[in-house]
């Protein structure tokens, strides 16, 4: 359930970058202050372990398809919330850069969806509460399954919110929710089962490893709760702002650029005088904003000749042909320049 750059708007991507960066900064401070030095290599190597473990598949019971470990909850059990969050975030950074899982702008979303929920919600408030300190095998499995399911449900819902408020995908909110949540219910159960199997295996073979994770930061302590509450408040606030943006100005950046440069006014008054200005005006007429299909929008924009979807469709033909030809030319031009640069480098 990695978010991809291609589905994100800058406003949502940027906001989530901010949230993720803040959480990383806070967790780094906590880890540096509260954990001993031996955790430094441990976090790094466990991150690499998750990376490797995610590539090993298993057959999902009763379905025959194959799955792999996510690892967020497992890391939280082994390392405690802060170190686990940093570790998950670091794995996601490498995945986004080397394997195009997600993307650079989507990194904020992915770190939040896949790191924050398991480390700061599912582990301290569900897993630890149910499992207690010396869980039996069944209790541990139940705790792991419920925690994994809750963590993934929240993550999946967060993906839906981020995607819908970005407005690149046309998938309606309700359909998306109905699509995502059940799938992640199944994934969550499997993730919980796998986590429980691994944890109980390790608990039997090397009990001190599982115990080590329990010590560093006691969950449910006041500071953690405060942090959680403030994060929740912050994300609600940000979410509110983002959705307001998305509804008022479907494209926040475009709106901002237009405001800053005053483009709209310029084209409005000096329409069709100069070729560049003319094409600029065309561009705006071509795609004024998200609401271009509504006649009301056309009317409101006045001079931009947006009449209605049907009438406009034929009018757009000219622009589209030119656009298509231009696209091909610019592509050829880009690769042509690349070719020349390459040749020059070879002779240099």
């Amino acid at each position: 359930m990695h978010m991809a750059d291609a589905l994100l708007s800058p406003a949502v991507g940027g906001t989530m970058w901010g949230v993720a960066a803040g959480t990383i900064a806070y967790s780094s401070m906590k880890v540096k202050k509260e954990l001993d030095d031996s955790k430094v290599p441990l976090m790094g190597v466990l991150g690499a372990f998750i990376f490797a473990a995610q590539m090993i598949n298993f057959t999902i019971p009763a379905t025959g398809s194959s799955g792999h470990l996510g690892g967020g909850l497992l890391l939280a059990i082994l390392l405690g919330p802060y170190a686990a969050f940093l570790t998950i975030a670091s794995v996601l950074v490498v995945q986004s850069l080397f394997f195009a899982d997600g993307g650079i702008l989507a990194l904020g979303c992915n770190i939040f969806n896949l790191g924050f929920f398991p480390a700061f919600i599912a582990y301290p408030f569900i897993y630890r509460k149910i499992a207690g300190s010396q869980p039996s095998r069944t209790r541990l499995s139940i705790a792991a399954i419920i925690a994994a399911v809750v963590g993934l449900q929240m993550g999946a819902f967060s993906v839906v919110l981020e995607t819908v408020s970005s407005g690149i995908s046309s998938l309606p909110f309700s359909t998306f929710v109905v699509l995502m949540q059940p799938i992640h219910l199944a994934i969550g159960i499997v993730e919980g089962l796998v986590t429980a199997t691994v944890v109980s295996f390790v608990a039997a073979a090397r009990p001190e490893i599982i115990r080590a994770g329990n010590d560093p930061v006691t969950p449910g302590r006041l500071p953690l709760r405060n942090v959680l509450l403030s994060f929740l408040a912050a994300s609600l606030l940000i979410g509110g702002i983002v959705s307001w943006f998305a509804s008022e100005n479907p494209d926040g950046l475009e709106w901002a650029i237009a405001k800053v440069t005053g483009t709209e006014e310029v084209t409005g008054t000096e329409e069709g005088v100069h070729t560049i200005l003319a094409s600029l005006q065309e561009k705006i007429a071509f795609l004024p904003d998200y609401s271009f299909k509504q006649e009301a929008a056309g009317a409101a924009e006045g001079e931009n000749n947006v009449d209605g979807p049907e009438g406009d469709a034929s009018g757009r033909l000219g622009t589209s042909v030119a656009g298509g030809v231009g696209a091909l030319i610019s592509l050829a031009l880009a690769f042509g320049i690349g070719f020349v640069l390459r040749r020059r480098q070879q002779f240099a």
């Binding site: 094409s279 561009k283 656009g323």
Partner: peptide, 8 residues
């Protein structure tokens, strides 16, 4: 500026 449009 839609560069493609312009060139086209």
């Amino acid at each position: 500026e839609n560069g493609a449009q312009w060139m086209g």
